[in-house]
Every structure is written in structure tokens, then in C-alpha cells.
């Protein structure tokens, strides 16, 4: 027990980094994902092609490669990121692509009649989006976004590879030092707690959207 208490501060410090990355990635990548999805649906073909290419790269290559590329690769051509900045940059780029695809599907499932009735009522594009389309899209995409949110909690462990002190690294350091499995078990439990809380909150949000159909 004493041993567990003694390693908790370092594990919590690691968990804090995990949560910070999780939080900033989420609140940046979701709005960016919406914007990119609107671009994917625009009538301007070059924009669509550029965005499709971006999504193809981001979804078609491992996030681990992207992290390594940004932190270890880019300095070769003179672009240098701090560890934390590199991690956040890679996560936002990667998750924006996934969110954009999810939102694109959501936008496309809204019947054209909803846009037309808004237009006949003379709402402008922005009013139509914010009051009518985005609430309906949100309801549709929440289950898929939920999956990505859970994935993101676990994916944060990948920053291990660029030497950022997050939860998994903290656990592994303790295990290697003290030759015991306990830190890794606790790391697992902390991940379970974080994904558990995230699922619980997502369920609540989903239920909130259930009052209309």
C-alpha cells in the first residue's frame, strides 16, 4: 500500500499531461472538424481536393508515424517543435481529419428540405447552420464522436515515443525501476477510469438529445 502511495504522485503527474493533451485536442479538433467538413461539401473543387488529400494522409498513415515525423523528422528541414507542441499539433491534425469525415456524413444526412424551408423563411447561411443544421447534425454524430473520444484518451499514450511524460511513461518508469507489475496495473485502472467517465458524460449528452426526434 505504501508503495502504491509512493508512486501515485508521478502517475498523477503523467495523467495530468494525458488529460491536458486530451482536452486541448478535443476542443480544437471538433470545431476544426466542422469547418473542414463544410469545406468538403463546398462547391469549390480545388478546396475539396486539398481537404480530401489531407484526410487521406491523416487517416491513411499511423498516428505514431505522424508524431515521429513532426517531432524527429521536421527538425531536419528546420521546423522545430517542443515536445508538447509537437504532440498537440499531431493530435489536432489527426483528429480533425476523423472528425471532419464524421461531420461530413452528418451534414449529408440532413434532408435538403430543411435548408430550403430555412431559406424560404429567409434565414441566412450562418443562422441556418447554427439554429437548425448543427443541432441536428450533432444528434446524428454523437455516437461516432464518442468512439473517437474514447480512442483519443488511449491514443494520448502514443506521445510516449517522443519522450513526453504522460501516464503510460510514468507507469513504465516505475515498473522498470522497482521491478513490479503494480504501476502498470494502476496505469490500466486510471485509463479505465478516464474512459469510463468519458463514456458516462457522452451517454448523458446523448440522452439530452433524445428529447426530440
Amino acid at each position: 500500500m505504501n508503495y502504491i502511495l509512493s508512486i501515485m504522485p508521478s502517475l498523477f503527474a503523467g495523467a495530468k499531461m494525458t488529460l491536458i493533451l486530451f482536452f486541448w485536442t478535443l476542443i480544437t479538433a471538433i470545431p476544426l472538424g466542422i469547418i473542414v467538413s463544410l469545406g468538403l461539401l463546398s462547391y469549390f473543387k480545388p478546396l475539396r481536393l486539398v481537404l480530401k488529400f489531407y484526410i487521406w494522409i491523416m487517416r491513411g498513415t499511423p498516428l505514431l508515424l505522424q508524431l515521429i515525423f513532426i517531432f524527429y523528422g521536421l527538425p531536419i528541414v528546420g521546423i522545430i517543435f517542443q515536445r508538447y507542441d509537437a504532440a498537440l499539433f499531431a493530435f489536432i491534425l489527426n483528429y480533425t481529419a476523423y472528425f471532419a469525415e464524421i461531420f461530413r456524413g452528418g451534414f449529408q444526412s440532413i434532408p435538403i428540405g430543411q435548408y430550403e424551408s430555412a431559406r424560404v423563411l429567409r434565414l441566412n447561411y450562418w443562422q441556418t447552420l447554427t439554429h437548425i443544421i448543427i443541432p441536428q447534425v450533432s444528434k446524428i454524430v454523437i455516437p461516432s464522436i464518442g468512439n473517437e473520444v474514447i480512442n483519443l484518451v488511449k491514443d494520448t499514450s502514443l506521445v510516449y515515443v517522443i519522450g513526453l511524460g504522460e501516464l503510460l511513461r510514468a507507469g513504465n518508469v516505475a515498473t522498470a525501476r522497482d521491478v513490479t507489475l503494480i504501476p502498470l496495473v494502476i496505469v490500466g485502472i486510471i485509463y479505465l477510469l478516464m474512459t469510463g467517465i468519458a463514456s458516462f458524460l457522452l451517454k448523458k449528452i446523448e440522452r439530452n438529445f433524445a428529447k426530440w426526434k
Binding site: P111, G113, Q114, E116, S117, A118, L121, R122, L123, Q127, H131, I132, P135, Q136, K139, W212, K213
Partner: peptide
């Protein structure tokens, strides 16, 4: 009809008059 499913009856009706 194309009512907005995410808005109540009264919100459906008052949305455009208040915004536009």
C-alpha cells in the same frame, strides 16, 4: 411541412421572426 425537428412548436414559429 419541413418543420425543424430540433425546435419546439413555438420555437419553430418564432425563430425567423426574431432572427430575420
Amino acid at each position: 411541412y419541413e418543420l425543424f425537428p430540433n425546435l419546439t412548436v413555438i420555437e419553430n414559429i418564432t425563430l425567423a421572426p426574431t432572427l430575420v
